[in-house]
Simulated scan of single mutants.
Amino acid sequence: MILAPWNVDAWNSLGERRRRDALPHAILLAGPAGLGKREFADAFAHALLCESPRANGFACGICRACKLVVAGTHPDLVRVNFELRDDGKPRTELTVDQMRTLSERLALTAQFGGAQIALIDPADAMNHAASNALLKTLEEPTPGTIIVLIADHPSRLSATIRSRCQRIDFRVPETKLALQWLTAQGVDGRQATDAMNASDGNPGLALAWAQGESLKLRGAVAQDLRELNAGVAAAFDVAQRWSREEADLRLRFAASLVQQQGRAQAHGGAMLSAGGPLALTRAVDLVKLTAWFDRANRTRDLLRGPVRPELAMLELLAAWAVAAAPNHDVQQRST
């Protein structure tokens, strides 16, 4: 397995701890989706269970243990992911029953006589009861077990659980390195730059979006915001459309576009003279723009709960006209 180049240092650090027999009982892999946390976790678990790991710390790929890992049948590797509901759809949280089952499993002796590895993904989707159940396991670790928690939003984990884990942060790499990696994956030129802008520098997301239709969707979101600002589109119509398909991704793109628009205005120069990504050719109130950015992200969180998405979208988009109004327009309204 080949890791993303920006994750090599973290891999070498864990490898050194393994050589010193100083691996922690619990590890938290934290950072935005798209930076390779899950590939890292799989490679790490595979290497720990391998009977003849290579000098670089990776699994050999040919021993009995490696073959079982690849087949998904290794008895000492436990994966805790979203289960299916009775209607066949995946749950949106990890449950207390899953954590209790995990605790019982880890209390048993490893069948191959080595380590037992548990991968919990996404750990930040545990409900309160599940978190409490896992905490008991973390506070009373079974010898020879390693629990790896994978979280795109580590702040959603309880502070107590975070304090029980050795944390490894996955951060957005330097733009030059990310673009080199994208080029190696077959994405180059303007598309790579557009994808990096859309993903706020996250190369994994940039690759996925460049290979799919997401960049077109981002362009459509930008057009909707421009038309709302120009008064040629109705917030109600846009809200209905956004709430029906790819609601979360549309909101993510909207927030990102507004953030980039704010940067364009703050820095001035050619990007502002061209109107920025939203073609706002006149300066707007950056405080209001930032507030709308925050509101868009809060709306993303709201949509994970029992709310009517079209109403949440409508409130957000109705506020866009005020947020995007030029400074002098805002002042005239207040007088």
Rank of each mutant, 00 (worst) to 15 (best):
E140S: 12
D97K: 10
A118W: 03
T95E: 09
L119W: 00
P173A: 12
I161N: 00
G88D: 09
E104P: 09
D97I: 13
S163W: 14
L106M: 15
R91P: 07
V148R: 03
S103T: 15
T92F: 06
D121P: 00
E140M: 11
L134Q: 10
L135A: 01
I168E: 11
T109M: 08
T95G: 05
P122V: 14
A123K: 05
A115T: 07
N132E: 07
F170D: 09
V80H: 01
A110M: 09
F82E: 03
R164W: 03
T137H: 08
N127D: 06
L94W: 01
V172W: 02
G144W: 05
E140R: 07
A110C: 07
P90I: 04
P141V: 06
C165N: 03
R85Y: 10
L138T: 02
K89F: 04
E140K: 09
L84Q: 14
R171P: 14
R105F: 00
A159Q: 15
Q116H: 07
A115Y: 06
D121C: 01
I146K: 00
E139F: 12
I146L: 11
A110S: 15
T145L: 01
A159S: 14
H128V: 15
T142F: 13
G113M: 03
D152I: 08
L119N: 01
A130G: 05
E139T: 11
E140V: 10
I161H: 04
S155E: 15
L102W: 03
G144L: 10
A133L: 10
I150W: 07
S131T: 10
